[in-house]
Amino acid sequence: MMTRVSKYRRTRFIAAFFSYLCFYFMIPFAYAGDKISFVANKDVSVNSLTSTDIKNIFIGKKSEWDDGRRIIFAVLKNEDTHVAFLKKYIKKSPDQFKNYWRNMLFSGKGMLPPTFVTDAEVIDFVTKTSGAIGYVVQGSKGDVKVLTISD
């Protein structure tokens, strides 16, 4: 009787453990479903970008548009959108992304990107800054160009 109860508990524990693991690893995919739009200043010459372009822009590996204009990217620190964006495009956690840019800063290889709390602030910055790009919740309005992601 004791053995049967013990086996039942062990099975239940293993099931709970694997459920936790499945839930943990599904989190990024759940976040990735969130809707994000990429907005750019109207003087930016491109209308679409690939996911690889997005990643390279936001980790500083792609620093100029096709016409040679400097890319200035804005980070939205809104928790859900930021996490969703990082998981889907950058493949880093918020902490890893923050430390990536601090690494660049304190080694002299880069500067921290401008960071904003609301979609409206990002859109305002992108509207006023030549060559700027940012990400916002889909449907946010402003005098900006909405870029499509081609893959």
């Binding site: 430390n99 601090r102 690494n103 304190f106 080694s107 002299g108 290889k109």
Partner: peptide, 18 residues
């Protein structure tokens, strides 16, 4: 004066928080 590239972590070894 440029930080030496030594391994992955030398260039920011001064910054404990990283």
């Amino acid at each position: 004066k440029i930080k030496s590239p030594i391994g992955f972590y030398h260039e920011t070894r001064d910054v404990d928080i990283l």
